[in-house]
Amino acid sequence: MWPVVDGRGRPARIMGMGWRLDGDEHPEAIRAEQEKFLLMLANVTDFAFIFIDTEGHVTRWSHGAERIFGYREDEVVGLPAALIFTPEDRERGMPEAELGRAITEGRAEDERWHLRKDGSRFWASGALRSVRDEAGNLRFFVKILRDLTERKLMADRMEQLNAELEQQLAQRTTELLAISRELEAFSYSVSHDLRAPLRAIDGFSHALLEDYFHTLDEEGRKHLDRVRTASQRMAQLIDDLLHLSRVTRSEMQREQVNLSEIAWQVAENLYAAQPERQVEFIVAPHVTAYGDARLLKVLLEQLLGNAWKFTRKVDQTRIEFIATEADGKRAYCIRDNGAGFDMVYAGKLFQPFQRLHGITEFEGTGIGLAIAQRIVARHGGHIWAEGAVGGGAMFCFTLS
Rank of each mutant, 00 (worst) to 15 (best):
V227D: 05
E28M: 11
N306W: 02
V376R: 10
E150N: 08
R146V: 08
I375M: 02
N162M: 14
E73L: 00
V283N: 00
I144H: 00
L259Q: 09
E159A: 15
A263N: 05
A235M: 12
Q302P: 05
D239N: 13
L153R: 10
I282T: 05
F341L: 13
T317W: 09
G64K: 00
Q274P: 03
H63L: 03
G366I: 06
H192L: 05
R335E: 14
G220M: 13
R90I: 03
T59S: 13
V314H: 09
V287N: 02
A307H: 10
L169A: 02
G347S: 04
A377E: 13
E159H: 14
F47Y: 15
I262D: 07
D53S: 04
R139Y: 02
G366K: 03
E301A: 04
L216F: 11
M234K: 06
E175R: 15
P27A: 15
D217R: 10
L208M: 08
Q232C: 05
L209M: 10
F321Y: 03
Y271A: 12
H382N: 10
D22P: 13
H223D: 06
V376F: 13
P27G: 07
A267V: 15
A273R: 15
Q167D: 08
T86C: 05
F353S: 03
A196L: 09
P80N: 02
M158W: 04
A155E: 13
A272F: 06
E91G: 12
G106F: 09
R112Y: 11
E184H: 06
L79E: 12
A155W: 01
Q316P: 09
F141G: 04
I84P: 07
L259P: 08
Q236A: 13
A230C: 03
T149N: 05
P3E: 01
G305E: 09
P11H: 01
G291A: 10
G368M: 01
S260M: 06
V287E: 02
H63K: 12
M234F: 05
E111T: 12
W264P: 00
D118Q: 04
F141M: 01
V142R: 02
L165I: 09
F213L: 11
P197T: 02
L39F: 12
Q167H: 14
R199Q: 07
I375C: 06
R249L: 14
K309R: 15
L208N: 06
I319F: 01
Q354P: 01
I201A: 11
L21F: 02
A32K: 13
G100W: 07
E361W: 05
V76H: 02
T398V: 09
A331M: 07
V287P: 03
I103C: 01
M40D: 03
A200D: 12
V142A: 05
A230G: 04
E159Y: 10
S189E: 12
R20V: 11
G100N: 12
D342Y: 04
V131T: 06
A293F: 07
L83E: 00
V344L: 12
V58Y: 00
Q351A: 08
T398Q: 08
S180M: 07
Q256Y: 01
F51S: 09
E386F: 01
L99Q: 00
E218Y: 13
T215D: 14
V247S: 05
E325G: 06
R132K: 11
T360G: 06
N337I: 02
G56D: 03
